[in-house]
């Protein structure tokens, strides 16, 4: 590779041994995150928030038992959340395994709903580099618009930050036009300091989105962890001018919690991030709770959950 004449922010970061990440105070970040939950979201603000949250969902199925039939059904749901409620948006994307990308792409044709595929040996990421690259390329070739990769947490915890950085950069290259979401699996990194450092590594290595979790590890997304990552995105924006997206995933199944996340997003990164180009919820059961709340806002009464299709 040719020697670059301009010094990139990524290189500066790398040369500093990835030690430029600021520290995070646990008590402080948890207090700040709790503060967002004190916002009282009512009336039109609530309806707008619920609609926006629907439009930010990556409707997800990531199971060993996933089949074409299951994926097709989910894709239909992604486009037709509740046909009896006019004016509803679609979800942002469906998120599937690489083997299901082709099926999903076909089912969603012309709808504007994106296809996201997990890759790089999801969820553990314990595969050889070549497998990760071919996994990514396979998904992209089958039509994936977005790739959700996992970082090598083992290497990260060993302190092999260069390895993690290079791996993300090479996956980014393999993605081509597809947008790259980098899953940090924060439940395995444990401390906020490590979450912050992993966020910085991912962004400087080329991530378009940073994402909390696979959904296979507990805890998955939490508000404080997401806040750490939003803070990293904000700092990255001011250092580079580039807007990186955020995707909390796993454990967000209720409307109220989704609204808390949107309040946090709105008050940390502001209006420019309040869209599905820069924010996603990785969730499978959130959509129906949002629909239930929207119907309640419209009709004044709660409807039974059987009025909302599960797929």
């Amino acid at each position: 590779m040719a020697v670059k004449t301009t010094v990139t922010p990524g290189l500066i970061f790398r040369q500093a041994g990835f030690n430029l990440s600021p520290r995070v105070d646990q008590v402080g970040i948890e207090e700040r995150a709790a503060r967002f939950t004190k916002r009282s979201i009512k009336k039109e603000t609530k309806v707008n928030g619920l609609m926006l949250a629907l439009n930010m969902i990556d409707l997800t199925t990531l199971e060993g038992k996933d089949s074409e039939g299951k994926v097709k059904q989910m894709c239909y749901k992604a486009m037709h959340l509740l046909d009896t409620y006019p004016g509803l948006p679609t979800v942002a994307a469906v998120c599937v395994y690489p083997s299901m990308v082709k099926t999903a792409k076909k089912a969603l044709e012309g709808s504007g709903v994106k296809v996201a595929s997990v890759a790089t040996g999801f969820p553990s990421g314990q595969e050889p580099h070549s497998v990760k690259i071919s996994d990514t390329k396979f998904a992209v070739q089958n039509g994936a618009d977005e790739i959700d990769m996992v970082i090598s947490r083992g290497k990260f915890l060993e302190g092999e930050y260069n390895f993690v950085f290079d791996e993300i950069a090479s996956i980014k290259e393999a993605c081509g036009e597809a947008r790259l979401k980098v899953i940090l699996e924060t439940g395995e990194l444990v401390t906020y300091d490590k979450v912050r450092r992993a966020s910085d590594i991912a962004m400087y290595a080329g991530a378009d989105f940073i994402k909390t979790s696979t959904g296979k590890v507990t805890p998955a997304a939490t508000m404080p962890v997401t806040l750490v990552m939003l803070g990293a995105i904000r700092d990255f924006y001011f250092s580079t001018g580039k807007k990186i997206g955020m995707k909390p995933a796993g454990g967000i199944s209720k409307s109220k919690l989704a609204l808390h996340y949107l309040v946090m997003l709105n008050e940390i990164l502001g209006e420019d991030w309040m869209n599905n180009h820069l924010f996603r919820f990785g969730a499978s059961s959130l959509a129906n709770d949002l629909l239930m709340q929207l119907m309640k806002e419209k009709t004044g009464v709660y409807q039974g959950k059987d009025y909302f299709s599960i797929d």
């Binding site: 990139t8 009512k42 950069a169 250092s239 001018g241 580039k242 709105n266 008050e267 502001g270």
Partner: peptide, 29 residues
């Protein structure tokens, strides 16, 4: 060296700004 990170020039102006107008406009509670 094997640096594959994306190349980004650092904007050295002060035009970067976050917008928070809507963050103050919640419906009355």
């Amino acid at each position: 060296m094997n640096h594959k990170g994306i190349n980004m020039s650092i904007p050295r102006n002060n035009t970067l700004k976050l917008k928070f107008d809507s963050a103050r406009k919640y419906a009355p509670a």
